[in-house]
Every structure is written in structure tokens, then in C-alpha cells.
Amino acid sequence: MFGPDETVPFKYVTCVLKDGNSYAGHIVMVCNNHNVTPGMVDMFRILSNACQQIASSAFFNESPTALFLRKLIDNARLTQAYFDEQSSLLGLDTTGWFGLGMIDYRGGEYSEQPSWVASMLQKTFPDYQVFSYEDSLLVLSFCKEGHVERRKEDFEKLDAFCQEMKCAAYASDTFEHLRNLRFAFAQTRIARSYKSCIDIEMRPLDNIDSRRVFHFGDAFAYYCLDGRETDPDLWSFCMDHTILDDIVAAEPGHSISDVKLLYCYLFNERKTTPTAQQLHMHRNNVLYRIGSIEKRFGIDLGQFGTRERLISCYRYKILTSNKFRQLLV
């Protein structure tokens, strides 16, 4: 209870609404013409408690869609029948091109205003699902086609958003089925856990002064080398959904396959002449084909992390797949 004083010439009662230590809003009762009685204070307490529940519900985004998406992350044993029924009732697409971003708002400039950050995130991505999970905000992107171009646009928007909010974000690989959401979330957590490694690696090699968005691809090599990971399902998912799998699936039918060309180009340290000599191609054709691969699959071979991941994938595929080895002969 406050007032009256010189600044505010009347009595008022106020209550700050919080979720834990996070500010959600506040409610004020102004008493201009009447004395504040214990009964009025009790009524205000009842009202503020109700508002607190509403604020907490709004912050945690307890919509049916958000609850379902959280279940997909938390529970690997949901039956296919339940998944099909719930996704149909909610009108969710289950196949296409998905991507997941984790926004670590608590480390940013607006860490005490999660609801406002969530509303700004939804404004930035109006066609996507935005929901809270644990200590982060998640944005689930989706498109039916043209995912390479859309993914690039989303990254630019996410980077601009994080620059404005002074926070960091972590992004998964693109995946094709909604049931793989839990693996995508695990990838964002991996990117977050190796943030300092990525930052050290990228600064001198890619001339990046400050990064706001960290991709799982940047953390891939560290994930492969770190023996602490124990989830075989996640490992299998990451290795079965690599850029090389996409390239093999979209093979255009050249006499020299894209996957073989890229292999020679990378292991020749991106030197065009020895790659052309090894494959009996003209060096200009090598440059054209490599540029086409980068454009079609949304990769930048000028980035050290991208090259590191591709080389790791090649080594794993060569080690584990006789069919893949045959593509390089």
C-alpha cells in the first residue's frame, strides 16, 4: 500500500506479477475517494492471485498446440495413433521441412520480460509456432518446399532478432517429420553446450567478431569427438540425416557424382586444379558444379565449420557403409 504523497496524491495498492524471478506485469488498485479497508485489500489479493495465474498461463503458453509440442520433446514413447489424432485435431502439418530455434532470452537484455520477448518473436515469425520450454523460447519453422531459401531467410531474421534483444539463439538441422522434434531440440541443446568452442573456432577462421545464432552444424565435429554423449538414437538420427544424404538423394545423374566431386574437392583442400586432374574434368566445370552444390543445398564451403562437418560425415559414411564407399570409387 502506498501514498498519498506529493507525487501521488491518493492511496493505491499494487502487486507485481512474476513467474519465478521473471517479471510478467503488475496490477494496481487506486483509491481516490475512499479509505483503504482490510476488506478492499482482501478483494485485491483475490484479484491479484487470479491475475497471477493468468500471467503464468500466458507466459508458459498453455495452448493445446504448445502442450502437444512439449509432449513430443519430453516423451519418446508417444504412440503413433496418439500422434496422428492430436496433430489432426490441432491442424498441424506432420511432414515437410521443419527447423527448430532455441532463443536463450534469459541471457539477454530483456531477461525479466519473457512474455514481451515471446510476443516480439511471434511478430518476427507470424507463420511459425512459438512456445516456451524450460528456460527458453522455441520457434518451430515449417515449409512445404523451397526450404533452403526459407532457411536462409529465417537465419537472417533470427540473427537480427537476437541482435536487437541482445540474446543468443541455437538452431537445429532441417528435419522432415514432426515426430523428430525431440531430436531437433537435442541438437539445439548441443549447439548451446558447445557455444564457447564454436565462438573460439569461428572468430579467427571466418572473421566473425560476434555471433548471435549458433547452428548444430557448427557443433557437429565437437559432438562427434566428445565421448560423453550416450544417446544412441540421437547419434543415429544425426548420422542418418546429413548433408551427404541429401546430396545422394538429389543426385542429378552426372557421369561424376556430386558426392564424389565434393569429396575430392574437400580432401584436396578446395584446390580446383588437382581436383580437376583427379576426376579428368575441366577446372571451370569443377568450379561451376561446386557452386551449384552450395546453392542447391544451402552450404557455404568458405566456412570452416561447414567443411569440418562434411569431412566428418564422409569419414563416418566411408567407415560404416559399403554402398556409400562405392559412390567414391
Rank of each mutant, 00 (worst) to 15 (best):
Q86W: 09
L17M: 15
D159K: 05
A160Y: 04
L328W: 09
N322W: 08
L17D: 14
Y194E: 01
S111M: 09
E229F: 10
D218F: 03
S48A: 15
D209C: 02
R270H: 08
L178G: 05
T14L: 14
A118V: 06
N35G: 03
F83V: 11
K271D: 15
N285R: 10
P252E: 07
S136F: 08
R106C: 04
A249K: 14
L17C: 13
Q52D: 12
E251V: 10
C31W: 00
G291W: 01
H34M: 04
P274Y: 04
R228W: 02
Y110P: 02
Q53R: 07
E251N: 11
N32K: 13
V130Q: 06
S57K: 10
E149D: 14
L67R: 14
V259E: 00
D240S: 13
A191W: 06
H241T: 06
F161H: 02
H282E: 01
S22A: 11
F183Q: 04
H34T: 13
L244N: 04
E112V: 09
Y133A: 03
S312F: 06
Y288I: 04
G108A: 06
F220K: 07
Q303V: 03
K123Q: 15
F44V: 03
L310Q: 02
Y105K: 05
P38A: 12
M202H: 01
T124Q: 13
S111T: 09
Y170N: 09
F216P: 01
S115G: 12
I256C: 07
N207C: 11
K18Y: 09
M102S: 06
V248Y: 03
L67M: 13
K166T: 07
A66S: 15
L279G: 01
S56R: 10
S236L: 02
A76Q: 13
L205H: 11
H177A: 12
P9K: 11
T272Y: 07
R106A: 05
F304W: 03
I200D: 08
F155C: 08
R150T: 08
T65A: 13
G305W: 12
S236N: 10
K144P: 00
R289Q: 05
Q278P: 00
C313W: 00
T242E: 04
E269N: 15
Y105L: 08
T272E: 11
T37E: 11
N75L: 08
Y12Q: 13
E176F: 07
Q278S: 10
V213P: 00
S88W: 13
C238F: 00
D42S: 11
K260G: 06
I54P: 01
Y316D: 06
R189D: 07
G39A: 14
E229A: 04
G91A: 12
M43W: 04
V286H: 04
L137I: 09
R228F: 07
F83K: 03
V259S: 02
G253L: 09
F60P: 00
